Simulated scan of single mutants.
Amino acid sequence: MTIRIVVAATGTDVGKTVFSAALTNALDGYYWKPVQAGLANETDAETVNRLTRVPESRILPERYRLNTPASPHFAAEIDGIEIDAKTLSPFGLPTPLVIETAGGLMVPLTRRLLQIDLLAQWRLPVILCASTALGTINHSLLSIEALKRRAIPILGVAFIGGENADSERTIATFGAVRRLGRLPRLDVLDADTLQSAFAQNFSVADVLDIGAVGP
């Protein structure tokens, strides 16, 4: 069975790119970010390449590379193009593929299409990355509800940040989703420290337990 997993987040700068790198490395798979908005600094694909040990050829090229760090629909308009959802079909590969979304679930890709609507077309299992900071309960439960309303399968929630056991338990309970683990913020972030932190806090077998996926 071809394994394709979408890594989404409750918002921007939660840490899903770092988590995507850790997951890609743990699965010895491929990574793909369909839409990259903002090219002035290190792109998300370049970050994943730096933080993993998978061959560079497994970091697949973005379908859209937009210059402005903004919502994809607006960044595309500035560049004079329109994102075509039909060109964003996930690859079928013999090894696992990790697909990273752009920003939060409700980010518009065009003036007519939200990112979550594209995920609803794909029907691929989603890992939701959530911060452990203040406000995460509200953001996470709203995101979980939005996924469930569209019958998008949820593998579980990956928390990122300092320990916040009550918030993590509350989100898992009210959202009726699995807590997959928590990736702490690392003082030194490189391929070695990230691989070690992921191995200590996550189980690949749990992540791939498709039978435990909730609607």
Rank of each mutant, 00 (worst) to 15 (best):
8 A>T: 09
8 A>P: 00
11 G>C: 05
12 T>Q: 09
12 T>A: 11
17 T>F: 09
20 S>L: 11
21 A>S: 14
23 L>C: 10
24 T>A: 13
26 A>P: 00
27 L>V: 12
33 K>I: 06
35 V>E: 09
46 E>Q: 15
49 N>F: 02
51 L>D: 01
58 R>Q: 15
65 R>H: 08
67 N>L: 14
70 A>T: 04
76 A>W: 03
86 K>M: 11
87 T>A: 14
88 L>F: 09
89 S>H: 04
90 P>G: 06
95 T>K: 15
99 I>T: 06
102 A>M: 04
103 G>M: 12
106 M>L: 15
107 V>S: 07
112 R>A: 08
123 R>Q: 15
126 V>S: 06
127 I>D: 05
129 C>Y: 01
136 T>D: 05
136 T>E: 04
137 I>T: 08
148 K>S: 01
149 R>L: 10
150 R>L: 10
151 A>I: 01
155 L>M: 08
158 A>V: 07
161 G>I: 04
162 G>F: 06
163 E>I: 06
168 E>P: 00
171 I>C: 05
171 I>T: 01
172 A>H: 08
174 F>L: 13
177 V>L: 02
178 R>F: 00
182 R>W: 01
183 L>R: 08
183 L>H: 00
185 R>A: 13
188 V>N: 12
190 D>L: 03
198 F>C: 02
200 Q>C: 06
204 V>N: 03
204 V>L: 15
207 V>W: 07
211 G>P: 07
211 G>K: 14
